[in-house]
């Protein structure tokens, strides 16, 4: 926005919604990355999925709490889940996506609970029939719901007048990559197996590089675009958000961890620190897409 040009009314959504977008992205990304890097060994896979799924459940519950706080009372949140009269509303679909993911996640945790008991009893093979199908289908549906949830803020914000960056052609992809980066960071912190950490290190390197390229392409798409888009780009890279963008998103959030991951591959602490940096950078970028106008 042009400095000194303050519109009325105020932007209707505050930082609570920004934090909600971050947590929803983290929850979605963690599920996706956990599925992506799932170890071959049944015991390690079950333990890893168990741990990451609990993190995701906590993040989803926090999302619900944030939305209830923002709306004022729980009944207002549940109204969005129970009303089907306007399924063309991005917010209506989003609320139902969160509920669907919560349901699938609970189901998956139940399956994982049974699986862990079975593995502990030495029963490695899955029973044929419904059990085998459930163990294959539930994580798949969970991944699909998570992918939708990761990209969902772009669809929601593109319908608003105050988040022009979300309406640009790379926004949905950026929301997906930021979610995946946050998910990879969380998964890295949750992983206890060395081979898994090594795999996640490569995943983070790939996602970080992809994010850098996507940011460049999104910048090109914004440059020379509609006036509102150009103003948003200027505010992001040279305006009042420039320090946060260059410092946290590019420097701390991408540059530093990518160099560290590429050059000091074997050091566990470096990997963990890089994961935290990537998490901070991706979360900040999601928040900036929401706030920069």
């Amino acid at each position: 926005m042009i400095p000194g040009l303050q519109p009325l009314p105020e932007v209707p959504w505050g930082p609570i919604i920004g934090v909600y977008f971050i947590l929803a992205g983290m929850a979605a990304g963690t599920t996706l990355v956990a599925e992506w890097v799932a170890p071959q060994d049944s015991r390690t896979a079950a333990a890893f999925a168990w741990k990451t799924s609990w993190v995701v459940l906590v993040a989803l519950m926090l999302c619900g709490v944030l939305l209830i706080v923002d709306l004022g009372r729980p009944a207002r949140f549940f109204l969005m889940l129970t009303r089907f009269s306007n399924l063309g509303s991005a917010m209506s679909v989003g609320a139902k996506l969160i509920a669907l993911k919560g349901f699938l996640l609970t189901l998956y945790l139940y399956l994982l609970h049974r699986r862990r008991y079975a593995l502990a009893a030495g029963d490695v093979a899955l029973a044929p029939g419904v059990t085998r199908v459930a163990y294959a289908v539930v994580p798949l549906l969970l991944a699909v719901a998570s992918l939708c949830l990761a990209a969902y803020p772009a669809i929601l914000l593109a319908r608003t007048w105050f988040a022009p960056l979300a309406a640009c052609s790379g926004a949905a992809l950026l929301f997906v990559t930021t979610a995946l980066l946050m998910g990879a960071a969380v998964a890295t912190c949750a992983a206890s197996d060395e081979a898994l950490v090594t795999r996640l290190r490569d995943v983070m390197l790939f996602l970080g590089a992809a994010q850098l390229c996507l940011l460049l392409l999104a910048g090109l798409a914004l440059y020379g675009g509609a006036p509102a888009l150009e103003r948003a780009l200027a505010a992001l890279i040279a305006g009042r958000n420039a320090a946060v963008f260059w410092g946290l998103v590019i420097g701390v959030g991408l540059g530093l961890p990518l160099v560290a991951l590429a050059t000091m591959r074997q050091q566990y602490l470096v990997t963990m620190a890089s994961a935290v940096c990537l998490l901070v950078g991706a979360a900040t970028l999601r928040f900036l897409i929401f706030t920069v106008a």
Partner: peptide
Amino acid sequence: NVNRFCMAACPYG
């Protein structure tokens, strides 16, 4: 339910 999406979507405030 005061979700304010209508306010965010209305270009006329």
